[in-house]
Amino acid sequence: MIDLYYWPTPNGKKISIFLEETGTPYTLKPVDISHGDQFTPEYLKLNPNHRMPAIVDTEPKDGGAPVGVFESGAILFYLAEKTGKLWPQDLRTKYDVAQWVIWQMANQGPKLGEAGHFRRLGDREGDQSYAVRRFTDEANRLYGVLNMRLRDRRYLAGEDFTIADIISYPWTVNWQAQGQDINEFRHFKRWFEEVGARPGVQRGLAVGADLSTDQSKLAPEEQAHIRKILYNQRAIHLPD
């Protein structure tokens, strides 16, 4: 059984989509990042980077002790290997998939996240126009990378749906908030609509829909408290 430590963000939804697509049994373990659950001593033992998601496999393939994994890319590699699904193992396709999983972790996720962050920030922290322009343009570049890749293939690694598609899709759902127009990228748009129509993807996106709160409806002091938890974090110091 897989214990999924989760909150309904794009990174969390990568894992819930895989589990729903493959019919892998799992138990949901909510990690409310707006209330600081990711900083508890218990969670830090599982994920020292105090981020979400993470998993614990209580029944690993080797029959040994439970296995914990953090970082969404590593989790998808682990689950695909465990289930034998959505990661073809012939030499060329295997590394075609791997490079796009790592591309998402190193490029798409961080840059689209920054685009959304600075575009939401407004002028609360002073003039953000350069940061908004910088990351909106970088987001546009990355949508162009996907569009170019998908011009002559159905999915990112060829004709089969894989973890490369699963890891990339959730970050594109909020394309409007990232300042993009997907009509500019017709090959990407075709892929986006096809992946989004998959029942397993839809089920994965819906996981935990009842957990999150519309922060815009909270009192200003509550919003400020959540921002303090989520942003401008510094190192956790070791106890004396």
Rank of each mutant, 00 (worst) to 15 (best):
G109W: 05
P88A: 02
P110V: 00
R119L: 08
T83D: 12
L91P: 10
W87A: 05
D96G: 04
K85V: 05
F118R: 00
Y95N: 10
T93P: 09
W103F: 15
G84K: 00
G126Y: 05
T83G: 12
L121R: 10
G122E: 07
K111L: 15
Q108K: 01
K111P: 01
A80G: 10
G116Y: 02
K82H: 00
G113M: 15
R120P: 08
K82A: 08
L112N: 09
A80H: 06
H117R: 15
E71R: 06
R92M: 08
R124F: 04
Y78D: 07
Q89V: 14
K85Y: 03
V101D: 04
R120K: 15
E125F: 15
L76S: 05
G73V: 02
Q99C: 08
Q108E: 10
L86H: 15
K85H: 04
R119D: 02
V101A: 06
A131K: 15
Y78C: 04
N107E: 13
F118S: 11
L76V: 01
K82R: 05
L86I: 02
W103Y: 09
G73F: 03
F118A: 00
A98D: 10
Y95D: 13
L112K: 06
L76Q: 03
L79K: 06
L91I: 04
N107D: 13
W103R: 08
R120L: 12
K82Y: 03
A74H: 12
E125S: 12
E114W: 08
A106Q: 06
E81L: 08
D123A: 03
Y130F: 13
W100V: 02
Q108Y: 07
Y130H: 11
K85R: 08
A74G: 14
D90A: 07
D90K: 07
Y95L: 10
R119N: 00
V101C: 01
L79C: 04
K111T: 12
M105W: 04
T83R: 00
Q99L: 10
R119S: 05
W100R: 02
E114V: 02
P110G: 05
A98Q: 08
Y130Q: 02
S72N: 00
Y130W: 13
Y130A: 14
E125A: 14
A74D: 05
F118K: 12
W100C: 11
F70V: 08
Y95C: 07
W87H: 15
Q99S: 13
L86P: 11
A106C: 13
W87V: 08
D96S: 14
P88K: 03
Q104S: 02
T83N: 10
T83W: 04
I75C: 03
F77Y: 01
V97G: 03
L91S: 14
N107K: 07
I75V: 09
Y130C: 04
Q99A: 06
P88D: 04
T93E: 15
P110D: 04
I102C: 04
R92K: 13
K94H: 11
L79F: 10
H117L: 11
Q104Y: 05
V132M: 01
L79V: 03
M105D: 01
Y78K: 13
Q89H: 07
W100S: 01
A80E: 09
F70N: 15
G113Y: 04
L112R: 00
D90W: 12
N107F: 07
A98I: 10
G109L: 11
G84A: 00
W103A: 01
H117C: 06
R92F: 14
A80C: 08
S72Q: 01
K94S: 10
A106F: 00
G122H: 11
Q99K: 14
D96A: 12
K82D: 09
